[in-house]
Nucleic acid binder design. Structure first.
Length: 110
DNA sequence: TCTATGACTCCGG
DNA sequence: CCCGGAGCCATAG
C-alpha cells in the first residue's frame, strides 16, 4: 500500500463502512469522531471520491439537517433516496423524515 | 508554493 | 426553522 493512498479520506471511509443499515449520520458527526470537527467539508469531499472505493455506503451520510445534499453525485436523480428507503428510511423532498431517530453518532456508538 | 474548490457547519437576525 | 454571510481545511491543479 502506498502512503499516498492513506489519507483523511480513508479514515472517513472506515467510519462510513461502520454505519449500520437503516441508520444515517452527518458529515460533521464523522468529522467530530475523527477529532477534526472543522473538517466536515472534507468528509463530503471524501464521499465525492468514494465511488473509487467499494463498500462505501455514501447514501447513509447526509448533512446535519438530514438533507440528501449529495444526491446529485449519484448516477440517477433518486438513487440515493431509493437506497435509503430500501433500508427503511423515509425520505420526502430530499429530507429524511424523523431524522433524529435514524441518526447514528459514531462518537457514541464507537 | 499558492490558489481555488466544496456531498459542511456555525452564527446572527 | 429559514436566510445570508463567514469560517474551515484537506485535496487538486
Amino acid at each position: 500500500m502506498k502512503p499516498e493512498t492513506l489519507s483523511f479520506f480513508d479514515k472517513v471511509y472506515e467510519v462510513a463502512k461502520q454505519i449500520p443499515e437503516g441508520r444515517v449520520t452527518s458529515y460533521g458527526a464523522i468529522a467530530k469522531y475523527l477529532a477534526a470537527p472543522r473538517s466536515a467539508r472534507m468528509v463530503g469531499y471524501a464521499m465525492n471520491a468514494s465511488h473509487l472505493r467499494d463498500d462505501i455506503p455514501a447514501h447513509r451520510v447526509v448533512n446535519r439537517k438530514g438533507l440528501l445534499t449529495g444526491k446529485f453525485h449519484f448516477e440517477g436523480t433518486n438513487v440515493m433516496q431509493q437506497l435509503l428507503e430500501n433500508e427503511g428510511v423515509i425520505v420526502v423532498e430530499n429530507q429524511i423524515q424523523n431524522f433524529s431517530s435514524y441518526f447514528w453518532d459514531p462518537s457514541e456508538a464507537l
